[in-house]
């Protein structure tokens, strides 16, 4: 079978054997492709620097027996700024891990690739206050593309007016009024401002989110809600998202551990 070209985003690398790597790729058409890059862990590898997670690359692939085989790679956008800042790096890992778990082999969702590239571009923005809102906007948009668009306009159960709703049902996927939604972890509280902010994140471009980040309190409220929403509906554990959410983006205080 002849080699064929593919533009893709590198989501994840897994070591294989002595010096090979398996890369999980999100193709431009929204497919997940898994490919072997031979000898990539050797310093003399021709494309080791291009196949790092977060890089958008043009590949030449050969069809193998079970996995594709990378025969050439050229970089399109390396998102190098994400590797020079700890918080951005952790946020990008969360985004890539969500994509790896949401996108399925054999199924295509063309919009995911565009969303992924726009998110990684936005994460390179200089304002660190924008990182959390960008990740939240990514989660809400990715879930919407996956068929779980949060319903924020009226009660998702009885369709009563939006002014009466104060909780978000993770199961029903939208805001609920006190009559329809019970209390508890499956229906966390969502403030009116939080609901408006979530709607704005859903409707805004990533560049807009990066340019005018949410207030920190609202940003945390929306992020916590979307994290719960993703955990409720995606049947696998997304470790990088947990890592990012649990404050791994913050190294310990300088004197921590010193006597």
């Amino acid at each position: 079978m002849p080699a064929y070209p593919l533009r893709a985003l590198v989501l994840r690398k897994t070591k294989l054997g002595e010096a090979d790597i398996i890369v999980n790729l999100l193709a431009a058409d929204g497919r997940i492709v898994r490919a072997v890059a031979k000898g990539m862990r050797k310093p003399t590898s021709r494309f080791a620097g291009r196949l790092e997670p977060g890089s958008v690359i043009d590949l030449m692939l050969n069809t193998g027996r079970t996995l594709e085989v990378v025969s050439d790679a050229r970089s399109v956008e390396l998102h190098a700024a994400l590797r020079t800042d700890y918080e951005r790096s952790c946020a990008a890992s969360a985004v890539l891990d969500v994509l790896d778990k949401l996108a399925m082999e054999g199924q295509t969702e063309q919009r995911l690739f565009g969303l992924a590239c726009a998110t990684l571009d936005a994460l390179e923005a200089p304002d660190t206050a924008a990182i959390r809102p960008i990740v939240t906007a990514f989660l809400v948009k990715a879930m919407a593309m996956h068929g779980y668009r949060p319903h924020l306009e009226s009660c998702v159960s009885c369709a009563c007016a939006a002014s009466a709703v104060d909780r978000f049902s993770l199961e029903a996927g939208g805001v609920v009024c006190p009559q329809c939604g019970g209390a508890g972890h499956a229906a966390p509280r969502l403030s009116s401002a939080g609901r408006t902010a979530l709607g704005a994140l859903l409707a805004s471009t990533m560049a807009d989110v990066a340019a005018s980040p949410l207030e920190a309190r609202l940003s945390e409220e929306c992020f916590a809600l979307m994290r719960g929403f993703v955990a409720f509906h995606v049947p696998v554990r997304i470790k990088a998202l947990e890592f990012y959410a649990n404050g791994a983006g913050t190294p310990p205080r300088p004197d921590d551990g010193l006597r």
Binding site: S89, P251, P252, P254, D255
Partner: peptide, 17 residues
């Protein structure tokens, strides 16, 4: 990426010392 992330983490923790 993982090695660089670890390096950034250590730098942020150790430089203030």
């Amino acid at each position: 990426v993982e090695g660089e992330t670890t390096a950034l983490y250590l730098a942020r923790m150790l430089k203030p010392l």
